[in-house]
Amino acid sequence: MKNKIIQACGFALLSACMIITALFLAGIIYFIAVNGRQALSWQFLTAPPLNGMSAGGVAPAIVGTFYLTMGSVIFALPLGVGCAVYLQEYSAGGRMSDIIRVAVNNLAGVPSVVFGLFGLGIFVKFLGFGVSILSGSLTLGILILPGIISASQEALLAVPVSFKEASLAIGATKWQTIKRIILPCALPGILTGVILGIGRAAGETAPILFTAAAFYKRGYPNSLFSEVMALPYHIYALMTEGVNPEKQTAIAYGCALILVAMVALMSSLAIFIRNKYRSAYGNGPRRNYNA
């Protein structure tokens, strides 16, 4: 009897944890959705800011975030998949692959602001790219690189060895096997990693603080070396700079809603792809918790 009461209390406690967690998080999303919706309009999405940030839209920030995100993926995708292929197919079991694996894991745990410092030191200063789309994209690319590497690695690992054997046994070369059998099979998993990476890159602020972002920029960026506005940084700037806090907050709500929607969409898409293909060859990659 006593045991039963303890069990009931314990389970009630666990349920309470779940409920509180769910309420907190649902509350935040709801709060942002309700307040953000008032700011949203066609004009908000397509017009540039007006009157010193207190009116108009956030189109340049959306465009800037798009550029930065795409830039980071263009950089991180080939490098990440290449690194994973090296680890999984060319050096598996070797000492070097262990070392690289550890390095990648640790890279994933590096705070995002430190990536920002790195970008500032290397891209902005040393390579002379300045505060620009290029510097920001590269910095964000390095930030999402570990996630793409580990997602790709897991995806490659999930490709049955028997496919590889079959291909090699017919006389395919290693590269033919990788290109025609292994990579296509691993594609959904790699894609999942990339989409999660896009979501992450779109929402990160600290790495672009010193490498790419501008509070206000007239017009749209016209070269890789332009400074850009970006959604997450725009939220920060609206809340901490400027002269009209009330109106700026309303705009920030709108930005926050767009950002949350974008990131949630990306995550859902990634989860959907992963679940759809999970059954095919074992489990798809998981999110990199370290990141």
Binding site: F163, S167, G171, Y281
Partner: peptide, 30 residues
């Protein structure tokens, strides 16, 4: 070259996750 001369069939059937045609055409194509 060796493996083109000496083919192999494995313990468990291991067709590629492709079409029947693509499974066979894979060899000549590569």
């Amino acid at each position: 070259k060796l493996r083109r001369n000496i083919g192999m069939v494995f313990q468990k059937p291991n067709p590629f996750p492709k079409t029947i045609f693509q499974n066979i055409s894979y060899g000549p194509e590569i």
